[in-house]
């Protein structure tokens, strides 16, 4: 029974810590990631999650024609590089930052509105190394010109 209670306590603490970490994610997105949108207007949407080395997240969004966009993807310092890919709905890769030294931003403009998918992956660390967890945020900027 004591073991069971210990487990419950541990689970409660972990859930609490995870909530706190998510809360810190917002601060991270606002203080750090938003700076990458300089020159663009942040659309106000917030997409962030705690990811561990090797983990992935996907985001679906409609991008509108004749509008300049910037995608900014950033992660906590403890994490390895973050790879992001932009794909069409047939999952054809339109852009990957892997070919661009894992740069955290990409600017683009569409000639016709499209639904695109953004796949974000935290690269795995060295084998045997304890995997790190940290905040990863995806923000969008629009040009106001």
């Amino acid at each position: 029974m004591r073991q069971f209670l210990s487990f419950l306590f541990l689970a409660t603490v972990l859930i609490g810590l995870s909530g706190k970490a998510e809360g810190q994610c917002k601060g991270f997105a606002r203080r750090i990631c938003k700076l990458d949108l300089e020159g663009f207007v942040h659309d106000g949407n917030y997409h962030a999650a705690i990811l561990t080395d090797g983990e992935e997240a996907e985001l679906y969004k409609t991008f509108y024609s004749d509008q300049d966009y910037r995608i900014a993807v950033c992660g906590s310092e403890v994490l390895e590089d973050i790879e992001f890919k932009v794909m069409d709905i047939q999952r054809n890769i339109l852009y990957t930052n892997k070919n661009n030294d894992f740069k955290g931003t990409w600017d683009f403009r569409l000639e016709s509105s499209q639904q695109l998918m953004i796949s974000v992956k935290v690269l795995s660390g060295n084998p045997g190394q304890e995997p790190a967890s940290g905040c990863v945020a995806i923000l969008f900027g629009l040009s106001d010109n």
Binding site: L51, E56, Y60, K61, L142
Partner: peptide, 12 residues
Amino acid sequence: KKIFYALPSPLE
């Protein structure tokens, strides 16, 4: 995986 659906924000 964590999946997000990003709707156009009111500002956009």
